[in-house]
């Protein structure tokens, strides 16, 4: 049985209606059905974090979410996060700190790092490392990524004063 399910959901603030194969995971839905190729399939079994996106405001592994289950949900991908400028400072810090090399992990890494900015504004370097420990990067030594997140946190704290 390869059933199709009709879903309507908000993706990056735009309403989207599609009939999806029941077996399609969120990342294939985003990439193949919506052309949102910023989210990457790195392992497709929930370990590498390259597919990190937001569902209903919280980060998830896109490869471990059934698109069919998302009727009525709100999904934010790296494209939407970029367009909203919510983490423009973080993305600038990634560039300034050279916190990406091949970039395949970067969208997922930015999504996970954005979660730190929202939920853990006072995170230490160790806590940043811990929070990002579900996102695999083969190229950097992680240090530049931690630098970028740490600097963004510090700047935001400074701005709030």
């Amino acid at each position: 049985m390869s059933a199709r399910i009709d879903i309507t959901l908000m993706v990056n603030g735009e309403r989207v209606s599609r009939s999806v194969e029941a077996r399609r995971h969120l990342i294939d839905f985003l990439r193949l059905d919506l052309g949102l190729t910023g989210s990457h399939a790195g392992c497709e079994h929930g370990v590498c974090g390259a597919c990190t996106v937001r569902v209903d405001g919280e980060i998830v592994r896109g490869c471990l979410v059934l698109a069919a289950s998302l009727d009525g949900a709100e999904v934010t991908t790296i494209e939407g996060l970029t367009d909203s400028a919510e983490v423009a400072d973080l993305q600038d810090a990634f560039v300034a700190c050279n916190a990406a090399q091949c970039g395949f992990c970067s969208p997922g890494m930015v999504m996970a790092a954005a979660d730190i900015l929202r939920h853990h504004p006072t995170a230490t370097r160790e806590e940043i490392r811990e929070h990002l420990s579900g996102n695999y990067c083969r190229c950097t030594g992680y240090q530049a990524i931690v630098d970028a997140v740490e600097q963004t946190l510090a700047t935001r704290r400074e701005d709030r004063r």
Partner: peptide, 11 residues
């Protein structure tokens, strides 16, 4: 590593 053909229903 695509999931096998499968159905889906929500309760």
């Amino acid at each position: 590593m695509k999931w096998p053909a499968i159905g889906y229903a929500r309760a």
